[in-house]
Nucleic acid binder design. Structure first.
Lengths: 155, 155
DNA sequence: TAAGATTGAAACCTCAATCTTA
DNA sequence: TAAGATTGAGGTTTCAATCTTA
């Protein structure tokens, strides 16, 4: 830790800009989604996973893996969503420890109504005005960072 | 809302990649900072603002503005940081409603020790391996999105 | 023992209501 | 009345401990 590789000016600016964008965009998306559809970004993410799945049912641990949520966080969140009637649970015949998470008609209705507004918001705040090159780069950076994260994990 | 401008495949991929990167990178940075230095990203952000300021003292509402935090969030967070001895408060002579937030020796020590590790983590997980072009683009995207956010605000 | 999942406590964030001074 | 700031309630996230079945 003696010769610290501090960020140069350009990196510094890029990093601060990224952090600022990230937090403000997140906050705005959350508020919009909440106001338009009474869902949080997290609710939305769970419902998307459920509708994307073949039978509209997913094992809890699968959800935890794809969303990369702690199992505890998932458990608390699903409990709240179940209380609100957005999801339900079904027994898993092949493994009595686990459960299937299913989307309810209420949950289905919620995501169907929320999705168009949300996409419109994402488009308006993010994609409109970006060039194809920027969108292209936008994909290469996360790819790179996710590689780094994976490498860092098993160190 | 009749003709929804859904995301095309490339946009879809870029958006999901961004969301994934964002949440995982955030989680990792937080855990590292917590493990290395017993600070959260939010603690770090507050301490950076305080050390960046001329006299190591900032009005609370200034902090709220630069960090873009709700005043309530700031108030709660500062209370916790004060309980831990990281910051203190001083009366504001010119406006009896407000207070100066000051960094304590403990807070100074915490950020001085945390910064090198944190920069190293950011570099390792994010910048290492990015080309100057990518870093350049990385700056143009937040600029663009922040413009959009500002435009959306007063609609 | 380990995997799937829940629980409770403590930290954190948001919203609305409130308090004090300008 | 409005600006600077705090408070309390309720939802969210993390961590560690626990429970049940594989």
């Amino acid at each position: 830790m003696d010769d610290i590789r501090w960020l140069d000016e350009s990196e510094q600016r890029a990093w601060r800009a990224y952090l600022t964008m990230q937090s403000r965009l997140n906050a705005r998306l959350n508020r919009r989604l909440q106001a338009d559809s009474d869902l949080s970004i997290s609710d939305f993410a769970v419902l998307v996973e459920l509708t994307d799945s073949a039978e509209n049912r997913v094992r809890a641990f699968e959800l935890a893996r794809t969303l990369q949520w702690e199992k505890s966080r998932l458990s608390h969140h699903l409990a709240r969503m179940q209380r609100r009637g957005l999801i339900g649970r079904e027994e898993c015949p092949s493994d009595a420890r686990g459960a299937f998470i299913v989307i309810t008609p209420t949950g289905r209705k919620a995501i169907d109504e929320a999705a168009p507004h949300h996409v419109e918001t994402v488009r308006r705040l993010f994609f409109d005005g970006l060039t194809p090159e920027q969108i292209q780069t936008l994909q290469t950076i996360p790819d790179h960072v996710l590689d780094r994260l994976a490498a860092d994990e098993c160190e």
